[in-house]
């Protein structure tokens, strides 16, 4: 880490960070409200988490411990790159362990280990406007938010039931925050929506391309929209994780071969590895192979000094 001095701490200049922090503070003050901010160009393409990275860069300090997940996994390209980025530009400690992280930047998941007080979840958001696909005019949707006209959101759920017999929206499931603003919880599966409700962690949402920041402060009501006769429900899985036998967690389908072979495994890799270290075994878990691989992966993640 000899080239740290060539960057400002955490990449962004201090004026930009102040601007983003102001947007974050406003977002916290008005839970669920989309605050416009002057999103900067980041050294990564839009859609890769430019909003989340800017939020993280604005709140991170030298003593923070950063965890980055992408679809629940610590070891995918996006997660590894963003972690490496902050190691380089802020020289912070990074981890894959959910409990010991102070900032968790995430795309599409909330970790299975419930976020705790003092932790900050930073979501990468592609489309912050929940009404976008029903009302394409931004001038109109902002007016609808201002006047609390949310009938249209239920039109979408109505369409789901009319077409599929149930609410078929499985991700980016709209929520109402603190009884006021309807918010897109970012493309997390609706499985994670209940975890947002009255969470002790601070939740920040950054949309870089759309130049919006919004927030859910700790212990805020986050209620998923539904109908009286079609109540909100989360996905269920009819089998446990094939590697760690965990139940009531969110599973990914993994294709094993081109003959239709597949298995369902935890989308949260940290959770899965911890359970396997504790000795839980799914029906497809190899004997020792995975445990050693997990070890070498976490060693690699120690900050290089």
């Amino acid at each position: 880490m000899t080239d740290i001095a060539t960057y400002n701490f955490a990449y962004l200049d201090e004026q930009t960070k102040r601007m983003i922090r102001r947007a974050i503070l406003k977002g916290i003050a008005i839970p669920g409200y989309q605050v416009p901010f002057a999103s900067r160009e980041m050294p990564m393409p839009y859609g890769w988490g430019t909003g989340g990275v800017q939020v993280t860069a604005s709140i991170i300090g030298p003593d923070d411990v950063l965890k980055v997940i992408d679809q629940g996994a610590d070891d995918t390209t996006n997660a590894v790159s963003i972690r490496a980025f902050f190691k380089k530009v802020a020289n912070v400690a990074v981890t894959t362990d959910t409990a010991s992280a102070t900032i968790i930047q995430t795309r599409h998941r909330i970790p299975e280990h419930p976020p705790t007080a003092g932790q900050v979840l930073v979501y990468q958001v592609p489309i912050p406007e929940p009404l976008r696909f029903l009302e394409p005019r931004e001038t109109e949707t902002r007016k609808m938010h201002a006047l609390e006209e949310y009938g249209l959101m239920h039109v979408k759920l109505y369409e789901d039931i009319a077409k599929h017999g149930r609410i078929a929206t499985t991700y980016a499931y709209p929520v109402k925050v603190e009884g006021r603003y309807v918010m897109d919880p970012s493309p997390t599966p609706k499985f994670d929506n209940p975890k947002m409700h009255r969470s002790p962690a601070l939740q920040l949402f950054g949309a870089g391309r759309e130049k919006r920041i919004y927030a859910v402060p700790p212990f805020t009501d986050v209620v998923s929209l539904d109908f009286e006769d079609h109540p909100f429900e989360v996905q269920t899985f009819d089998q446990p994780c094939a590697l760690c036998a965990a139940e009531n967690v969110y599973l990914d389908e993994v294709i094993l071969d081109d003959h239709g072979g597949h298995m369902f495994v935890c989308s949260d890799t940290d959770h899965c590895e911890k359970r396997r270290e504790e000795g839980h075994r799914g029906h497809l878990a190899p004997e020792t192979h995975f445990a050693s691989e997990a070890h070498s992966a976490s060693e690699e993640l120690e900050p290089a000094q």
Binding site: L152, F227, E228
Partner: peptide
């Protein structure tokens, strides 16, 4: 729905 009907 706009006037608050929530029963499908």
């Amino acid at each position: 729905m706009a006037v608050g009907d929530r029963h499908y």
